[in-house]
Computed example of a mutant assay.
Amino acid sequence: MTLLEVGKVDKPHGLRGEVVVTLTTTEKARVAEGARLVAGDREVVVVSSTPHHHRWIVAFDGFSRREDTDAIVGAVLRAESIADTDPDALWVHELVGAEVVEADGTSRGRVEAVQENPASDLLVLDTGALVPLTFVVEHTPAGRVVVDVPAGLFDLLDG
């Protein structure tokens, strides 16, 4: 079973065992009633969730007091991979560590992270470069991302 990161438990919320969760996925179903997640090393089941300032207030089964949440605050939330029928879908776990090359074969570094950005999420490279995902033209789960960027994007780094 493959588990993918879908969010993080940020902090407790109130006194009734609810927590604030930041999703790292666009799949709101991950915090829907009945959703099963893994928080750290334990399985949790969503009882209810409510959107709250770009995050979610979530109640998990078995967590009825603020003290109950201590075990999962700060935990990464993971969930089973769902079958994806879109062959062009980009998954963060496939991008991190991948080599980024331009269409002409010029290597530009490796992806260290994917940074959220309102216009387009960014590939954060180990060279310090930031590449908008809109410029990705090909990717393979084997660890290669081909980008077609505007002239000059890498010039400042090449110095």
Rank of each mutant, 00 (worst) to 15 (best):
T50V: 14
I82C: 03
V46Y: 09
L4F: 09
K28N: 14
V31F: 02
L90M: 11
T134E: 13
A113Y: 11
A119P: 00
T106G: 04
L15P: 00
D148N: 09
L37V: 05
D61R: 05
D84L: 06
S48P: 06
V19D: 06
A83W: 11
V146W: 03
H52G: 01
A113E: 09
D41E: 11
E112H: 00
D86N: 14
D70A: 15
V146D: 02
D158E: 15
A119N: 00
G74L: 14
V124T: 06
T26A: 09
P12C: 03
L4G: 00
V136F: 04
A98L: 05
E27M: 14
R110K: 13
T127P: 08
E80K: 11
R55A: 12
D70K: 06
L153F: 12
E102L: 15
G62P: 01
L4K: 04
P141E: 10
D88L: 13
D121N: 11
E27W: 12
L130T: 10
W91N: 01
H93A: 11
R36E: 15
V9E: 10
S81W: 03
S64E: 11
T50L: 11
G105F: 07
R42Q: 12
P118Y: 09
A119S: 04
D126E: 04
D70C: 05
E80S: 08
A75M: 13
A75V: 14
A119K: 01
L133E: 11
L95R: 01
V146H: 00
